[in-house]
Nucleic acid binder design. Structure first.
Length: 302
DNA sequence: CGAGTTTGACCCGCGC
DNA sequence: GCGCGGGTCAAACTCG
């Protein structure tokens, strides 16, 4: 791991395209700005830690994609929102994880067999359905390391150069079987010191890595790294221990629905997660404290 | 030896 | 229809 991070430090130095989530021209400050509505943390956590997303929230999203959400006005929101959270074991995901399943080329003729070899069995996984995406959301973290400790174990499964960026994007998957959470890590193009971590899906398990980090996170919280850390730790994402890291969750575009439009909709899963790294309720609306961790120029809009 | 990383190739969606 | 770019796979490799 360390070795990877070391490596990345060198070849990953910036990146443009979380344009996926934010308009390309979107200034970071703004990202920070809109990212942290008081209601956001909740929904955010729901997405991450919670198994059963209530369909209704998605419905809401679809019906009122950009109501009063500052984010949604600024973000193009692609399709993820459309995916059906009601089917946690959505075919797309599960099929991907069980790639070998479908194809034992039991009875292919020689030609096909040949093809199978050359194609490495990549083909069969295609389905008729459009690929469905889990809701995504991202953190912006000011950090020197790309892959932040978040309390979960991740396995890297790919790396891609990103267009318009000299920095590659890394793809990680939760190593826990049956947990299909994915995460993308990339560096901000405009500010290489910022790491953008995008989570996709929800953990179906508690953080396998000790709660110690949670404590650390909690310590941070109490010592000033409030809101962002709170959010992060809330779903098992241990905040980077170093004080030099800021974790800034920002709303992912793919979820135009407000993250927790009504902060009151705590669901059990959410609470469950919070048990592992509970920052405390006050954090949910700790908007003011954000100023403690975000440089003032980033907050100027406020 | 097992777990994780690297890396090139492939697949797929989308815009032109 | 085509090309581009993002996302994923899996063999080979590395490391503990």
């Amino acid at each position: 791991m360390e070795r990877k991070e070391g490596l990345k430090m060198e070849d990953v130095l910036g990146n443009s395209s979380f344009s996926d989530y934010i308009p390309t021209s979107f200034p970071l400050q703004s990202v920070f700005d809109f990212s942290y509505g008081e209601t956001m943390p909740l929904g955010f956590m729901e997405l991450l830690g919670v198994q059963d997303l209530s369909p209704s929230s998605f419905d809401m999203a679809e019906q009122a994609p950009s109501l009063n959400n500052p984010c949604s006005t600024k973000i193009e929101s692609p399709a993820e929102v459309l995916n059906q959270p009601t089917t946690p074991n959505s075919p797309s995901v599960s099929s991907a994880s069980s790639e070998a399943v479908n194809d034992e080329p039991v009875k292919v003729d020689d030609q096909e067999e040949d093809q199978q070899k050359t194609k490495k069995q990549l083909k069969p996984k295609k389905t008729n359905q459009k690929r469905q995406r889990e809701p995504r959301f991202a953190f912006m973290t000011k950090s020197e390391v790309d892959h932040l400790e978040d309390g979960y174990r991740w396995r890297k499964y790919g790396q891609k150069a990103v267009k318009n960026s000299s920095f590659p994007r890394s793809y990680y998957r939760c190593t826990t079987t049956s947990c299909n959470v994915k995460k993308r890590v990339e560096r901000s193009f405009s500010d290489p010191s910022i790491v953008i971590t995008t989570y996709e899906g929800q953990h179906t398990h508690p953080s396998p890595i000790m709660p110690r980090s949670c404590l650390a996170a909690g310590a941070h919280l109490s010592s000033g790294i409030s809101a962002a850390g709170a959010v992060a730790s809330g779903f098992g994402m241990a905040v980077q221990r170093s004080p030099s890291h800021y974790q800034q969750p920002f709303v992912n575009t793919s979820s135009p629905f407000n993250f927790g439009q009504n902060g009151s909709s705590l669901n059990p899963g959410f609470l469950h997660e919070r048990r592992f790294c509970s920052p405390g309720p006050s954090l949910l609306k700790d908007h003011g404290l954000l100023q403690d961790i975000v440089p003032s120029h980033m907050l100027k809009e406020e």
